[in-house]
Design a protein around this nucleic acid. Structure first.
Length: 409
RNA sequence: GUGGCCGUAGCUCAGUCUGGUUAGAGCGCCGGGUUGUGAUCCCGGAAGUCGGGGGUUCAAAUCCCCUCGGUCACCCCA
């Protein structure tokens, strides 16, 4: 036996039923909100991520699946969607407003635990070319409605603004000065980040005492960033979307500015409880080679975690299971099953045309059929036996009545 | 990369401390009780290199050493 790789999952029934519901809900909402489908490469140039995501980020420093391909190029399995989608926007002309929805696996080489796999699945939305706070609000609202729609309970939203790059130069100095003063109280990791990535110290769990009194970006926003944030907030208030301001929320990727946010569920018990997050990333396009700025905002939701927080729904998977009692009638049954499926009914049957009625009933029960129709001696009179599995009630009816029954159920 | 816990049937686990009949149970699967009736009930069956290797012993799932895997947590993120 060759087992699956560490940190990868086979997603099979019954769990996969929730995935189907989630992906359908995402697809449906994306269409309603005007986002077009994007199917992106799972593999890109390593440089795209090192420049876009940031050299000093955890992801780039030690979590990427990077290797040399047969042509000697350094390539990387995507650890996230955004950099690749922005690359495609620039590569295809880089103009105007483009709204895209994407879904697929991402790869990060980490020690697996609950809610954290080496291959994990994300649904993703990117709103490119729009600088107004309304775009931030739209992707946040979309995410909230998606979680609501699939039945996640205890939805929480943390919101913050980390300001513009220009505001952050002054703020960064202030923070570094503060951290250096408290250096002796900091963890080793935090000390290392004072120079390379001081913002990340703000969400360090090991340094909560020092961080509590540290200056936060929210108090040092420039006037434009401050106005952007207050407009976004009042729009969210108007939509009735609850949130809490978390002044120490920063994101692990370097390209963010202004609005950042994170969704979680209070019912998902795990150390990795964030269901998704995102924010505005106006600086990214130029980091990866655009000759003009591209304002943009996006969100990525972790499907594996959302599915953990979704309720299971017991419902009949199939409208009908067709059991063949007289195997000479297999050709007629084949045609009837096909006709019903073409009309949109969910039908299954024993395609082997060899098993006993008893075995076919067992199969029907196992796959969650609402009823069984027996094709046997009564077929010559235009009838089948219809047995409703839940009640055990059985009667002989015409094939037209079977369809009526399924429609009214 | 570091630490805790766990590896026995397809799944969930008992048995390990205190070595000793043929390694068990529940669920699931297959068959029969009903050659046209599931779920429920009764009867039967298949299925296990006890994670792997080495050692101690008359004897190892059980004790010792090494190793591999899983899981949760730290770190970090979706």
């Amino acid at each position: 036996m060759i087992p699956r790789l560490k940190g990868t999952d086979d997603i099979l029934p019954p769990q996969s039923e929730r995935w189907r519901r989630l992906l359908r809900a995402f697809d449906d909402l994306a269409e309603r909100y005007g986002y077009d489908l994007a199917l992106m490469p799972a593999i890109e140039s390593t440089e795209l991520f090192s420049r876009g995501v940031g050299e000093t980020t955890e992801v780039v420093e030690k979590q990427m699946y990077t290797f040399e391909d047969r042509g000697g190029r350094s390539v990387t399995l995507r650890p996230e969607f955004t950099a690749g989608i922005v690359r495609s926007y620039i590569e295809s002309g880089g103009q105007g407003i483009v709204k895209l929805a994407a879904a697929g696996p991402q790869f990060r080489y980490e020690q697996p635990q609950k809610g954290r796999r080496r291959q994990f699945f994300q649904v993703d939305l990117e709103y490119l070319g729009e600088s107004a706070p309304g775009a931030d609000v739209e992707v946040i609202e979309f995410s909230y409605r998606l979680l609501e729609m699939v039945g996640v309970s205890g939805i929480g939203l943390r919101l913050n603004s980390i300001g513009d790059s220009a505001d952050r130069v002054a703020y960064r100095n202030l923070l570094q000065e503060y951290l250096r003063q408290r250096q002796s109280d900091l963890s080793e990791d935090a000390r290392r980040r004072i120079d390379s990535n001081p913002l990340r110290v703000l969400d360090s769990k090991a340094d909560t005492e020092v961080v509590r009194d540290a200056p936060v970006p929210l108090d040092h926003l420039g006037p434009e960033a401050a106005q952007h944030f207050s407009r976004a907030r009042s729009a969210l208030d108007g939509l009735g979307i609850p949130y809490e301001i978390d002044p120490r929320l920063v994101r692990g990727l370097d390209y963010y500015n202004r609005t950042v946010f994170e969704f979680y569920s209070s019912s998902f018990e795990a150390a990795q409880s964030s269901l998704g997050g995102g924010g505005r990333y106006d600086p990214l396009a130029e980091l990866i080679g655009s000759r003009h700025p591209v304002p943009a905002v996006g969100v990525a939701m972790g499907c594996d975690r959302i599915v953990h927080a979704m309720p299971g729904v017991a419902e009949h998977r199939l409208d009908l299971y067709v059991a063949v009692a007289d195997h000479d009638l297999t050709p007629q049954a084949t045609e009837w099953v096909s006709r019903l499926r073409q009309r949109g009914f969910k039908i299954d049957w024993d395609a082997s045309a060899s098993r006993s009625v008893k075995a076919q009933f067992k199969a029907a029960n196992r796959c969650g059929a609402a009823a069984v129709a027996i094709v046997g001696s009564e077929w010559s009179r235009g009838l089948v036996s219809l047995k409703v599995l839940e009640t055990g009630e059985e009667r002989q009816v015409s094939v037209e009545e079977v369809e009526e029954w399924m429609k009214q159920r």
